[in-house]
Design a protein around this nucleic acid. Structure first.
Lengths: 231, 231
DNA sequence: TAGATTGTTAATCGATTAACAATC
DNA sequence: TAGATTGTTAATCGATTAACAATC
């Protein structure tokens, strides 16, 4: 049962719905139609209804969607209602940034431990969490029932650590290292490749410039022609 | 001319090609066929050829692609061959993580300045860059010919700062704040919504668990039936 | 030349949008 | 009840894959 596979595109959009519903909730909006929401989010109402109906009928004809109810339901779908025990591997700036992001705890992501290879970091305390050496790693994961790991270490060490995490029973890796990890089918990896993100930005700003350049040249070409005509 | 619009999906994949080509280059591989590359990258050879041919014919029949040439050309397409002056707004852990990521400079992204609102951070020096107060912001952007800004501040301040950046002439915003920014058409925004990324991971690990649960139940159901049959 | 592999066209697949009957 | 808006089916659009002629 429940055989339908949810497309990747839909999963990508779910957290964005969640965020907009949170904003609506905070500003005291009780109900919203797919049409109103579509205007705010700059997507089609049709897409919103299609997306939501992958998971069930959360709305009511003639009324729309109850904001609080829909918010809660999407939270359940995303697994935000459960608790996820997390370790952070790599206690550099990025690892610490994640550790300090308080909102994560609010959503059920509990940082159980931080690890690093650098002996100068080991023993330091960030947000009440002691930074440990990676020797402990496997035992710690088992003892603390850790399910997820954020990987904020250089790519050179990432593959090796990922293997150890998987062997220790980790089921989800949030990968910030600049490599694609090879893991078994029952382990999920979510990549945050910051350098790729920055390159996309670079591509887009450059192609925007090129476009403006072309339009300007076109303008000049027109003027050129006009001048020619006058001769 | 050059009127064909490149699809978002293609742009997303380009930096990944770039990364794989870099690896090949580093390991001394001179030439590669779309087929070999497709195996490494776990995509179809057809997709690789289609993607690349959006920008021109970089390969040669019977030979494949010259790794170094293709790497350079994709670099040009991504704008990595040019220099981009960058400021970081928000000098917290995340801002510092970006400032410390040396690779960015290697690819032509030059961090001209860092800014923060927190007076306790102002005056500190990170990687040789002094953290400034935001009063300076507009003047600094103009004086230093800054084109891009990384926004690593809380969502409450993000919209206001984004407006100021745009007014000062910024053309690209790398947005880490948990909001969608409203900017004019000629300004590009690349979002890195970490909380959404983590929720996607959560979704996927939960649906993986559910799936395994279902399979287990199915197994048990089968055994149940077998037991019934024996009676 | 023969073999390999591209560039490109055509076929397929999936995702998005439109439309509307169902129903609150 | 009448009006509004969903849930869902059908139509459209775009992206991916397959196939193959061109050509190195």
């Amino acid at each position: 049962m429940e055989g339908r596979e949810i497309s990747k595109a839909v999963v990508t959009r779910l957290p964005r719905y969640y965020r907009y519903l949170e904003e609506l909730l905070e500003s005291g909006v009780e109900r919203i139609s797919s049409n109103e929401l579509s205007v705010r989010m700059k997507v089609t109402a049709s897409q919103i209804r299609q997306d939501l109906n992958n998971f069930g009928g959360f709305g009511q004809q003639g009324y729309g969607y109850n904001v609080k109810y829909l918010y809660t339901e999407i939270g359940k779908i995303l697994g935000i209602d459960r608790e996820h025990n997390l370790v952070i591997i790599g206690a550099g700036n990025l690892g610490q940034a994640i550790a300090n992001y308080a909102n994560f705890e609010k959503r059920g992501f509990i940082i159980k431990g931080m690890f690093d290879i650098n002996p100068r970091l080991i023993g330091l305390v960030v947000r009440g969490i002691e930074i440990r050496g990676v020797d402990d790693l496997e035992q710690f994961i088992v003892d603390n029932n850790v399910q997820m790991a954020a990987l904020t270490i250089p790519k050179t060490k990432a593959a090796e650590i990922a293997d150890r995490l998987v062997d220790a029973g980790i089921k989800a890796i949030w990968n910030f290292a600049r490599v694609d990890l090879n893991v078994p089918d029952d382990v999920v990896v979510e990549n945050v490749h910051l350098s790729e993100s920055l390159m996309r930005l670079s591509y887009r700003v450059c192609s925007m410039q090129d476009q403006e350049e072309r339009m300007k040249n076109q303008e000049e070409g027109k003027h050129e022609k006009e001048r020619e005509h006058r001769h």
